[in-house]
Amino acid sequence: MKGLSIQHITKSFGSSKVLNDCSLDINGNDFVALLGESGSGKSTLLRLISGFESPEKGKVILNNRVLLDDQLFVKPEDRHIGMIFQNYALFPHLSVRKNIAFGMSASPESEAYLEELIEIFELAEQQHKKPSNLSGGQQQRVAIARALAVNPSLLLMDEPFSNLDQTLRRKVRIEIKAMHEKFSIPMILVSHDPEDALELADKIAVLQQGKIVQFGVPSELYYNPVNQYVADLLGPNTKYKNQFIRPEQITFNRSDFQGKVIRSAFSMRGNILVIEADGHEFLAYDYSRTNTIGDEVSFGILANH
């Protein structure tokens, strides 16, 4: 079976258990985002998959090949797992071209592939420069090209956007999405930003206290989170009768509820209101920006999109 299987991984640092009987199965070429608060074990899980950490217990299988179990530990260099690091980890003493070629064997085919990668990632002009002379976005592209150069069976990305500003972040997200389609290999992205996960991933896995608490398609996690932790991680919400209501589900075109605006704040999508109704505080977008604090409003809740 093509894909990655993580089974019953347990890992502690000192007395704190970072991963606790953690399991996850990724099929085919899925793009999976791993979400969780800082300290939830995301990066540790990534380092365990790549072989930079070893767990007390558990099993990792990639494309039917056991990488880790009670007896076996395949070294990171023999796993064929690419990794994009948070700070890109480009070799400062090597040019862009040599960085990308670092893990490649010397052959005419790889030489051709190197040229192709340089072209795909639009690095022809920069190829003889040192990484320190590149912009953040360019460094990011070198890191991705370098990881793909060795034809990995799986690509891991540890918070790859954390050093980019908002505009660049959006652009790089689109690039990565396109790259995933082009190279068709499974990818795991670690992020603490729900926007990254919702926009990019085929599936999202949420880590809470060292365990995967929910794994599914983005819309499922967004509208039907299993608990308050998952709901909060993916954005603002109001818990009402065991349902997590997102602000954009509130419509002023219906009058199922009567309430009073108790707070209002400006946001890009519209004023965000806190409406007190039926003993709850509902969050809602006021796209027309007409309601102010103290106003009596009537509203309804739309079904999940």
Partner: peptide, 8 residues
Amino acid sequence: DASRSLGV
């Protein structure tokens, strides 16, 4: 780590 993840 990067070097080893590239098979070196």
